[in-house]
Design a protein around this nucleic acid. Structure first.
Lengths: 218, 218
DNA sequence: ACCTATTTTTCGTCTTGGCTAAAAATATTA
DNA sequence: TAATATTTTTAGCCAAGACGAAAAATAGGT
């Protein structure tokens, strides 16, 4: 059984590995966890002793398969609880993160498998992020950023890159959610802005919006 | 926001106050929490500083209204989560305690009020214990021990005193659960044993069983 | 290659919540 | 009431996880 602090470090390192592909630096971990580099060094040495990651002084950290499995387990729990909060307790998708941060540390294999079943074995969380299975494997989809689409292409919203409250509320206002179909009506190459169609509405979106919305094209 | 340790102390003291009516001794708290008296002294001094309980050296502890409110809040969460586990995730009532011990420390007012609503605002947990409302008030029922009933009296099972796994499994085997109607067919004054009727079955129960089963008579 | 800036680590310290051993207060019993 | 037993507190210590300051290693620029 791993401590809350250990689980949070593993999770953060897991995410940083995905984003950066390769060793994760002490500073990067400190930034993401809002802690100090010296604290990070302490902890990654401890996690290295426990064989959850490999670490050479000054060279950054890389999760071992065991460490990765534990991190994926925490992320699995986090995302399942988010589904629960949104689907069953009618929370809005921009208010579930903090609560899931707490729920993800409840230890019970049986609880999480029952929860998974209760929710209908969902593959994605309310933000469109994939939920690892009990072995830590993730079903990856071919998703791209809306900004990568060209004029007249269609896509289905499957997630967001940024998930700040402001951004999620913007999407809500525009009636964009997971599963929403989007058609690109026009694209301005000068500033990357677009005009898109959502349902019967047509409107303008900035490059910044388009670069933070994942869509699936089929 | 109170720490996990603080919440657990408050909860333990709350329960001991109910059972013993009056100041709670250092040793009693240490026993219940499987910790040492010296640790208890440290913590109750800390809680007294925070005005969550009143404490005079060598005289035991008594919760303040504020401390009692917090304790009741933790118990409310514990019991609501137990209902969730049994009603929604099909857990057996003898396996939910440990999980609820973890879930009860998740902090979110909104979560717990939504959960309450989702569960249909239950008044009792799966063991028949009352669930405090959001203000910490408990709806007490006139429950008595089965052992207090006389021959030919009827009662409805509303809870258990002991909730050991062995006992709960015994009840399960005998098809006794919350809401089960019980008729006392005979009572032996020599050893306190009884013959009771449950549904179409009639069987013998020992004094020990009868003293650990709460019933409501009406 | 050298000097400087940045990153990372080490070291000593802090807080929380435990513990043991010993001292102090209270309770009990002769 | 005096002696003893029990309970409670105090004091010093430990581990986890965080911090800042200073030292060490690496990276960059010339």
């Amino acid at each position: 059984m791993y401590s809350l602090a250990e689980e949070n470090y593993l999770k953060a390192i897991y995410h940083l590995e995905q984003e950066a592909k390769g060793e994760v630096s002490t500073n990067a971990i400190a930034d993401r966890m809002a802690t100090k580099p010296s604290s990070v060094t302490d902890m990654i040495q401890k996690l290295a002793d426990k064989k959850l990651l490999s670490y050479k002084r000054y060279k950054g950290a890389l999760l071992t398969p065991e460490g990765r499995k534990i991190a994926a387990g925490v992320i699995r729990k986090h995302r399942l609880w988010e589904v629960f909060l949104v689907e069953k307790l009618d929370f809005h998708w921009d208010e579930v993160h903090e609560i899931a941060e707490q729920l993800e540390h409840v230890h019970s294999e049986k609880l999480i498998s029952r929860l998974d079943q209760f929710l209908g074995n969902p593959d994605f969380d309310p933000h469109g992020d994939p939920i690892p299975d009990k072995h830590g494997n993730i079903k990856r989809t071919e998703k791209k950023l809306l900004s990568e689409l060209d004029k007249k292409q269609r896509g289905v919203c499957v997630g967001v890159k940024e998930s700040s409250s402001d951004f999620l509320q913007y999407l809500d206002k525009k009636k964009i959610t997971i599963g929403t179909k989007i058609l690109v009506l026009g694209k301005e190459f000068f500033d990357g802005s677009m005009v898109i169609q959502v349902g019967r509405d047509q409107f303008f979106i900035s490059k910044k919006i388009a670069e933070n919305l994942y869509v699936q094209t089929n």
